[in-house]
């Protein structure tokens, strides 16, 4: 089953005004794969994820989700986003909703599912991220690590085919990083397909099937964690790794 393509990116280009941020990205993500994206600040990691989720409009190239090429129609993009979950650096929980309602709002509003069923499922998801006792609390009362775990549960509630993480632990105090990584690790072991932008090299090495090194809008090198971290080929990757360890 590892052969089913969830995401296929072909020759993706993206510019902001005159600034070319992505200069031809090709990337395949298969079902059950965990891919880490590493690279310096400004190399285009966030932009790549945001293009895959259509939060940014690509300039050139193709993106296929589940083998389907995406057109511009708003309806189609909304439908697609249901299949592609996203977890942000700054959590972006909905502050006016309780933790439980944050997790429920997607299925209830978008899929118009039965509330009781959704609630049951949401509570189970909260249990999976270790926050079932916080169901009725508002996000402002939670630590960053807890908020990020809620954000993961919220994304999972839509039953996505793939989860995109954009530096999920960068906004956290060091002592809270572990609890979030633990949840992501659990998802990986459960077979969730994931694309993770991260600076946690130890974690990337441990959890990933493949690591992609982005440099100035291009994939400079990609391979297994061992290839990337222990036998980097390009000079840029070597110096990036030595700078970050």
């Amino acid at each position: 089953m590892k052969d089913k393509l969830i995401i296929k990116v072909e020759g993706l280009h993206k510019s902001f005004d005159n600034l070319e941020v992505l200069k031809g990205i090709d990337l395949d993500v298969h079902e059950g794969e965990v891919i880490s994206i590493i690279g310096g600040s400004g190399s285009g990691k966030s932009t790549l994820l945001r293009c895959i989720n259509f939060l940014e409009k690509k300039n050139k190239g193709n993106i296929f989700i589940n083998g389907k090429k995406i057109k511009r129609s708003a309806n189609e993009i909304n439908k697609l986003r249901e299949k592609v979950g996203m977890v942000f650096q700054r959590f972006n929980l909905f502050p006016h909703k309780t933790v439980l309602k944050n997790v429920m709002v997607g299925p209830v509003v978008i899929k118009k599912k039965n509330k009781e069923q959704v609630e049951k499922n949401a509570l189970k998801l909260l249990e999976n991220v270790g926050l079932e006792d916080k169901a009725d609390v508002y996000p402002a009362m939670l630590s960053g690590g807890q908020q990020q775990r809620v954000a993961i549960a919220r994304a999972l509630a839509m039953e996505p085919d793939v989860l995109l993480f954009d530096e999920p632990t960068s906004a956290l105090d060091p002592e809270l990083v572990g609890e979030v990584l633990h949840v992501i690790d659990k998802l990986a072991k459960g077979g969730m397909t994931m694309l993770i932008v991260t600076h946690e090299m130890g974690f990337a090495k441990e959890v990933s099937d493949r690591v992609v090194f982005l440099h100035e809008g291009k994939i400079e090198e990609s391979g297994t964690p061992t290839e990337i971290f222990d036998n980097p080929k390009s000079e840029r990757l070597k110096s990036f790794i030595s700078s970050i360890w």
């Binding site: 989720n53 939060l55 708003a74 909304n78 439908k79 697609l80 986003r81 249901e82 592609v84 979950g85 996203m86 942000f88 700054r90 972006n92 929980l93 909905f94 709002v105 997607g106 509003v109 978008i110 954000a151 919220r154 994304a155 839509m158």
Partner: peptide
């Protein structure tokens, strides 16, 4: 703007 992005990323339409 992160609020709208999070909502849209879940799959909500602009109106929702």
């Amino acid at each position: 703007y992160g609020q709208e992005e999070a909502a849209r990323a879940l799959g909500m339409s602009k109106v929702q």
